[in-house]
């Protein structure tokens, strides 16, 4: 039954890991802007810096 000491200790350690992860995330400013990243991730990466598609070709869909 003494395995309970081990299991509880592990569970507490896991919880502490999550707490530190949370504090780190807050400190890094991840929660300061909760909207822009959600929009940003939906943008296509289709535009490469070097690429300059001709304007008239890709506008037809509107």
């Amino acid at each position: 039954m003494s395995v309970i000491y081990l299991l509880i200790s592990i569970s507490i350690i896991v919880a502490i890991v999550f707490l530190t992860a949370f504090i780190k995330a807050v400190r890094s400013g991840q929660y300061d802007d909760d909207y822009t990243p959600s929009v940003r991730m939906l943008f296509d990466d289709e535009l490469k810096i070097t690429e300059k598609p001709k304007p008239k070709e890709e506008e037809k869909q509107i």
Binding site: D32, D33, D34, Y35, T36, V39, R40, L42, F43, L47, I49
Partner: peptide, 27 residues
């Protein structure tokens, strides 16, 4: 709107001298 975010974060495409730009929408 999202177009605003998109265009402002792609400013470097108009002027390559701009290294990067990042929008904070709420502010």
């Amino acid at each position: 709107c999202s177009s605003c975010i998109w265009i402002l974060e792609n400013l470097r495409r108009i002027k390559p001298e701009i290294l990067s730009s990042q929008v904070t929408f709420h502010e």
